[in-house]
């Protein structure tokens, strides 16, 4: 049974790779952009899920860590000529003026920077619980944004940066997403993952069993910030421009939406929800323009797309109260069981 499953998994991975190749060949840049966004949101969703879902800490600071990652990566990879163009109000700090790194090290450093900030914030903030933790992390993410707005010579302030090289392609975005998925699965299966889940279920019981609660929380928070930083950097390089206003708390809520919709504490759920939300937002665009029903033409109402999107969200949450997947994960065994059940029901 186990052997059969790993063969199936291997086949699944090969199938996904082929699919990537196929999409890379056939998609135009519009579909490609949506496809890349799906992968970036998977990375971001999984990193938030690690804290909110698996460790049970309600954090709302994700946008702040994304901002740290995006700005670090942008400042490291921007060419000196582009930097000069961007910083026309005040010159850039001299030590950054001539750095032009390749993408990979810049991406790693941006993740590390976000992780360091996450680590520093974790120490005071994680003494709080529930709503208070949410407020404190939200506050910290806003502080990061306000600092970036005011450091004119480091981040170009409210003007933002443009001309970021378009490094984010299907291999980077989906490569990072796949790595994140594998990392999260390995982490959750190991002793750290079990410890994190036990903290989520009952902190006092976990402590009684000899788990260093505070240390585990800090580790979870730092890892989450690391991936948030990398996701932010990828997003910045997909857009080619960033500014502080982009990293408002609304961005955190977009990702929180993905996590909650997929199921708080489910890797599979986050992956599914990230893809569904990103694709649905674009598909529903037809609602905004005028629709020809044959008999009559309905004039487009701007914003109708958002109404339908919200209605669909509510419908899903009403029927799946714990998100699409709850805390369940995808496995070949459960899929097999489900298929067999459908088969049994079939002939009746």
């Amino acid at each position: 049974m186990k052997r059969k499953n790993s063969v199936l998994s291997f086949a699944g991975v090969v199938f996904c790779l082929l699919l990537l190749l196929l999409f890379n060949k056939t998609f135009d840049s519009y579909k490609m952009r949506i496809f890349n966004l799906c992968a970036i949101y998977i990375t971001l969703g999984l990193s938030l899920n690690l804290v909110n879902g698996f460790t049970g800490l309600f954090s709302l600071g994700h946008a702040g860590f994304m901002a740290v990652g995006a700005y670090t990566c942008a400042l490291l990879t921007l060419s000196p000529a582009n930097k000069e163009m961007n910083f026309f109000l005040q010159p850039i700090l001299p030590f950054l003026a001539n750095t032009e790194w390749p993408f990979f090290p810049a991406l790693l450093v941006s993740g590390l920077c976000a992780a360091i900030i996450g680590f520093l914030i974790a120490a005071p903030v994680l003494r709080l619980k529930d709503d208070y933790l949410a407020i404190a992390t939200l506050g910290f993410s806003e502080i990061i944004r306000v600092i970036f707005t005011n450091t004119q010579r480091l981040t170009n302030g409210a003007l933002g940066l443009k001309g970021l090289p378009n490094y984010t392609n299907v291999w980077w975005s989906w490569g990072v997403a796949a790595l994140t998925i594998v990392f999260m699965i390995r982490l959750m299966r190991g002793s750290y993952g079990k410890a994190l889940k036990s903290i989520r279920e009952d902190e006092i019981a976990a402590e009684a069993m000899g788990i260093d609660v505070f240390r585990h929380k800090v580790i979870s928070f730092t890892i989450s910030s690391f991936f948030a930083g990398i996701g932010g950097a990828l997003l910045g390089h997909l857009l080619g421009t960033i500014d502080p206003l982009m990293f408002r708390f609304l961005l955190t809520f977009n990702i929180l939406l993905i996590v909650v919709l997929g199921g708080i504490g489910s890797i599979t759920g986050t992956v599914i929800a990230a893809i569904v939300v990103t694709v649905l937002m674009e598909v529903l665009r037809v609602l905004d323009s005028s629709i020809d029903f044959g008999l009559f033409v309905m004039k487009g109402i701007p914003g109708l797309r958002m109404v339908i999107f919200s209605a669909l969200l509510m419908a899903v949450i009403l029927f799946y109260q714990r998100g699409l997947m709850g805390t369940n994960e995808f496995s070949w065994d459960s899929l097999g069981k489900r298929l067999r059940r459908i088969k049994k029901r079939g002939p009746k």
Binding site: D28, Y30, R33, L37, L238, L245, S289, P302, G303, M306
Partner: peptide, 23 residues
């Protein structure tokens, strides 16, 4: 005229512009 919404959001603005160009 093909009017698309960018939701006052930078990511959506890029999506909308790509849609206008490609689709």
């Amino acid at each position: 005229l093909v009017i698309v919404d960018n939701k006052s959001d930078k990511v959506e603005a890029a999506n909308a512009a790509t849609r206008l160009v490609d689709k």
